[in-house]
């Protein structure tokens, strides 16, 4: 093949090792622009990722053992007694390993004093324990406050509210995953709920200084499966809010829920 013909009109023939004059430089410039351009684009997109919040496992503390009173409804919570600087009983949400809740039989465990061991997850005021094994019952007579009644304070009604926000799974939100909100994470959040992890509502506004709520149905029980259609979306929910210890529980009237 003659160089004359090959070079004509910049006609490129892939199997020929000789490039038409000028084309080599064009392709080199193109390659440099593309490699440089996409690298900058990757950097820009990565630099602009959303803030996933500050939730994380408390790796530094390692496994801890806590003693408190267990409640199973709407979802398992371990109540720690008030302490200096903490005037109310402190509710620690419970989960199992991975995307599983703690299997608790309310008939035998509700209101009992138990000991639970596991890793803590924390995001702001929210605390969750990833329980290793099962919580072990302790003799109720040695309860730190002398009886579970005082520990799990009577629910205080805070009225009926309409709130805008997002339903998340309590474990990812507390720090098991970053980010843990948004539609991309939806399937994961739903798998957590299927596994029995407590759902939480993160509202745009705050009630009594908190914008984080443990969720229940309007009668204070576990939410039905249908709630999964509302997870990870901007939703408007309505229902009664009540305070138990330092946790706010949002008893949602799902019939009135709206996707925004």
């Amino acid at each position: 093949m003659s160089a004359h013909q090959e070079g004509r009109d910049g006609f490129f023939i892939g199997w020929s090792d000789r490039l038409p004059r000028g084309l080599g430089r064009f392709l080199l410039v193109l390659a440099v622009l593309v490699v440089g351009g996409v690298s900058l684009l990757g950097l820009a997109l990565s630099g602009g990722v959303e803030d996933p919040g500050s939730g994380d496992f408390d790796w530094a503390a390692g496994e801890r053992t806590l003693q408190g009173v267990l409640t199973a409804q709407p979802y398992p919570v371990l109540w720690l007694p008030p302490a200096p600087g903490r005037p109310r009983a402190h509710g620690v949400l419970l989960s199992g390993n991975g995307k599983a809740g703690v299997p608790i039989d309310p008939a035998t465990m509700e209101g009992r004093l138990v000991e639970a061991t596991g890793l803590m997850l924390r995001r702001g005021t929210i605390e969750m324990m990833q329980v290793k094994g099962d919580p072990t019952p302790r003799d109720p007579t040695v309860a730190p406050d002398g009886g579970s009644g005082a520990l799990v304070a009577e629910p205080v009604p805070l009225g009926r509210w309409r709130m805008v926000g997002e339903i998340c799974d309590g474990k990812c939100y507390a720090g098991a995953m970053r980010p843990s909100t948004g539609l991309s994470h939806r399937a994961c959040a739903n798998l957590c709920l299927i596994g029995g992890i407590p759902p939480v509502f993160v509202s745009a506004g705050a009630i009594e200084g908190t914008s984080f709520f443990l969720m229940a149905d309007k009668d204070g029980r576990r939410l039905p499966d249908g709630v999964r259609d509302l997870v990870a979306l901007r939703v408007q929910l309505e229902g009664e809010v009540e305070r138990r210890g330092d946790l706010l529980v949002f008893k949602v009237d799902l019939d009135r829920a709206r996707v925004l």
């Binding site: 690298s39 900058l40 684009l41 990757g42 950097l43 997109l45 990565s46 630099g47 990722v49 959303e50 803030d51 996933p52 919040g53 500050s54 939730g55 994380d56 970053r178 980010p179």
Partner: peptide, 16 residues
């Protein structure tokens, strides 16, 4: 750029 360099300029409370 996305996985290694990007995190250096991300403004997040904790890394993703």
């Amino acid at each position: 750029a996305y996985l290694w360099v990007g995190p250096l300029i991300q403004r997040t409370s904790l890394p993703l």
